[in-house]
């Protein structure tokens, strides 16, 4: 049931049970493979990049490396994206590249079995259905399991080299 579009950096053969990090974006709860998470840190400010799309908050200094900050709330089309004391950055690693993701709050680390993740019904969404690996239900709440590596590497997220110049 794993997404066929998983880049090679994702675990090759998914074990039956894997750990996921769940977090809140707006009212929704998402979960991502914990192996893609490099660290979690507080978000204070980023250096804005002129001309970048709104969901790119800018770049931060992560121990000497310049890392882009993607606001998942804006990326997912949520109107409000306030930064509160709970706002955190999840630094994700995709291949050799790093990106920091702004989310409203980090919830928990969950072990999800292969069987717990059910395929998502086809629906149009700003996330792009291809980055949703499936849905899981934990404590009566629905979790959207995201292919974060695929999402960060997608051309429309604009973090990669494939979109060289700004229009």
């Amino acid at each position: 049931m794993s997404s066929p579009s998983s880049p090679p950096s994702a675990p090759q053969a998914l074990p039956a049970v894997a750990d996921y990090l769940s977090f809140t974006v707006g009212e929704e709860v998402y979960a991502i493979d914990i192996l893609a998470v490099r660290e979690i840190r507080a978000f204070d400010s980023a250096t804005r990049i002129a001309g970048a799309p709104a969901f790119i908050r800018g770049v931060i200094n992560l121990r000497g490396v310049i890392v882009p900050v993607v606001d998942l709330r804006l990326r997912f089309g949520l109107a409000a994206a306030e930064c509160t004391a709970f706002t955190v950055l999840i630094v994700v690693e995709s291949g050799r590249r790093l990106a920091a993701v702004v989310v409203d709050a980090v919830n928990d680390v969950l072990a999800l079995g292969e069987d717990d993740i059910r395929p998502a019904p086809d629906f149009p969404s700003t996330i792009g259905a291809r980055f949703i690996r499936g849905l899981a239900t934990v404590d009566e709440r629905m979790l959207v399991v995201l292919d974060i590596v695929g999402l960060m590497g997608a051309p429309e997220t604009g973090l990669g080299e494939q979109t060289e110049e700004q229009p």
């Binding site: 002129a50 200094n61 000497g64 490396v65 310049i66 590249r97």
Partner: peptide
């Protein structure tokens, strides 16, 4: 000089970034 391309990409109008004395990034 810190490359923007390592983790992000080329941005028109900026050649690279750097880290200022206060730890913040400047383009």
């Amino acid at each position: 000089i810190k490359s923007l391309e390592t983790h992000y990409r080329r941005v028109h109008g900026f050649s690279a970034a750097t880290i200022l004395g206060n730890g913040e990034v400047a383009l």
